[in-house]
Amino acid sequence: MTELRSTSDKLDNKAEDKLVLEDKDGVICNNAVNEYLMGIKGDLNQAERLVSDAVNNLVCNFRYISELAGSNHEMVLAIERMATSEGRNPINELLEKQMVTANRIEQELEAVITSLQFGDLVAQLLAHTARQVEMLSVELQRIDRQGSLQGKTEKRALNSIHSGIHKAVNEVKNKSKKKPVVQQGMKMGDIELF
């Protein structure tokens, strides 16, 4: 994009030096847009990594808990077989309570299976947003390329577009709050004692 503009400008005569300067503004503007969009894509990638790390950890926890729940269930069944079948003795009452707990754990684990799928949903959503940002970037570059190939009668209008985009990006940048998350993974954060 910059290359195209420079080449076309070199071909122009000296009287068009002013336009070269105006085009330089355009290049600065596009660099700012690219930088801004790259920043968004970086944030999206970071969010994807964080979610992915969290889900991987949760899946490990889930597998461990489900194994423990399975062992517990088997143990309850074994104790039940050993317990006397005559009437309601304290062991049988405890076993009944234990069975209720085991069933509840099983139900909760099923709910966790549904909840854990959020990672996949978020990853797909982030990929979709990243694609949209990419498309916006490509479209802006296309407009810029087209602009550099237009006749000089339209230069003023193009400069106005460039300065409009430049202003818009700056405005969004200024309005944006400081990035609240800097972690790149789910590792434990530093601890500082005073």
Binding site: V55, N56, V59, R63, S66, I113, L116, Q117, G119, D120, A123
Partner: peptide
């Protein structure tokens, strides 16, 4: 079949 490892694990577990 799924490209997400976590989904594959949840499906397989179920």
């Amino acid at each position: 079949v799924d490209d997400s490892a976590s989904i594959r694990q949840m499906v397989t577990f179920t």
